[in-house]
Each structure stands twice: as C-alpha cells, then as structure tokens.
C-alpha cells in the first residue's frame, strides 16, 4: 500500500498539470476572495447591512473558483492514465484495482486538504486586510468562523472525491470535466429556471456543500449546514462507489 501511495504521489507531482493544480487553486481562491472582499459593500444582495452581513461566507467565497483546478486534476489522475495508456503499467504493478483507486483517492484528498488549508488561511488574512476598507466588520475569531473555515476545507476534499469518482466512471477527460463543472456551476443556474427549481437548487453540490460556510441568517438559507454536509457526502460516496465499480469490473 505504501509503495502504491508513493507511486501515485510521484505521478501527481511530476505531471505538470496535476502538480500545478493545488497552487493554482490557492491563487485563484485568494484572488477571487480578494476581489469579493474589496468590492463588497453594505446594501447589496449578499450583504444587506453591515451587521447582518455574513462576512465569513463572503471571504471564503473565492473557493467557488478555486475548486476548479483541484477537481479537474482529480479527474485527470484517472482519465489521464486512460488517455496515455499508463493505466496498463499501473495495473500491472499494482494488480489490485481497488487499491489503485484508493491510493488515488488518498492522494487527491490529501492535496485538496492541503490546498484548502492554505486557501482558507489566506482568505481569513485577506478578510482582515480588506473588509474594513469596504465598511464591513472583520469576522470574529470565534468557533463559528473556525467551523466555516474548516468546513470549506472539508468541502474541497469531498468535491475532489466526487470528481475522482466521475473520472473513474467516465474515463474520458472532456466528458468528466464537463460533467463535474456542469454539476458545480450549471445545475444551480438551471434549477433557477425550472418550476419548483429550488428543490433541485437545494440539493446541488455547491449549494448543499457551501451551506457549511454560512454563519449568519441560517434560516434564510435553502438548506441547513448539517443537511448540506450529508448531501455532499452522499454525492462523494455515490460517485466514488460508481467509479470504483466501473474501475473494478471493466478492463481498461
């Protein structure tokens, strides 16, 4: 298992597209959060008044953009091997297929957690620096803030597993990326167009998962943080299970 893990880690860090992904994720998260924090002002939809403004959620919102490189890299770790034919040698070296997929899952989760921690820490520093300039209070260093921050890291790890599962299921990078990004970005938009779409919007992975970032106006949210976490975990479990089934039962 340890050797298989080391092999996966070597692949991850020596392929430029996956090696760059976590750094790109941190950079994009911080850039997006900085723009949001600098342009936020009381009296907008996201921020009705300075008191009711969920500054924690506002500061962490950059992860919506920052998640993209990590989820794409997660899908690439599986589909990339099918594209180049590397999957043959990989399965020759480690014939137990579930072990291969598990080591991939461990690797991408670890990377996502690391990128998430760095991003979240950066976001909180940005909040401290930029929010007062926008006339908004700095988020307090209390348990709620820490919960939202750690939940964001957890969100990143779970959404990465969703992407890995979809990659293993579809085995085609273009299809996997389109499906994952569609799930993340298009589903909430389409839900808004449909009659009774709030039911669908509620259970979209981004809406459900990022409910965990909420620290204020909990009753105004579509879905509660705990239900949101359950829904996102269900997505991750379903995607990885389906991916593992296909990986286990179908030849490369």
């Amino acid at each position: 298992m340890r050797r298989a893990l080391r092999a996966e880690w070597t692949k991850w860090r020596t392929v430029p597209s996956t090696a760059l992904a976590p750094w790109l994720a941190v950079a994009l998260t911080l850039a997006a959060s900085a723009v949001v924090a600098a342009t936020a002002e009381p009296g907008t939809t996201v921020c009705p008044t300075a008191e009711t403004c969920d500054t924690v959620r506002l500061t962490l919102s950059g992860v919506q953009l920052g998640q993209v490189p990590v989820v794409v890299a997660a899908a690439l770790t599986v589909t990339g091997e099918y594209g180049t034919g590397l999957i043959g040698p990989t399965l020759t070296a480690v014939p137990r297929r579930l072990r291969v997929l598990t080591t991939k899952a461990v690797t991408v989760t670890a990377v996502a957690l690391a990128a998430g921690l760095l991003s979240v820490a950066g976001c909180l520093i940005i909040a401290r620096a930029l929010l007062p300039g926008s006339g908004l209070p700095v988020p307090p260093a209390d348990a709620t803030t820490w919960r939202a921050a750690l939940a964001t890291v957890l969100y990143l790890a779970l959404i990465t597993l969703v992407s890995l599962g979809i990659g293993a299921l579809l085995r085609n990078i273009a299809a996997a990326v389109t499906t994952v990004l569609g799930l993340l970005f298009l589903l909430p938009i389409l839900a808004r167009l449909l009659p009774n779409g709030h039911l669908l919007e509620k259970y979209a992975p981004t809406t459900a998962g990022l409910a965990l970032q909420t620290t204020k106006n909990l009753e105004a949210q579509l879905i509660s943080p705990s239900t949101g976490l359950t829904v996102l975990t269900a997505y991750a479990a379903a995607a990885t299970t389906l991916g593992a089934l296909r990986f286990h039962t179908h030849d490369p």
Binding site: S17, L65, V68, P69, V72, A75, L76, G80, G83, I173, A174, V177, T178, L181, G182, F185
Partner: peptide
C-alpha cells in the same frame, strides 16, 4: 483537453 475544456467552461 482538460485545460481547454476547463478554461472555456469557466
């Protein structure tokens, strides 16, 4: 592929 598809969609 991954870079192009991701960039266009984003």
């Amino acid at each position: 592929t991954a870079a192009a598809v991701t960039t266009t969609i984003v």
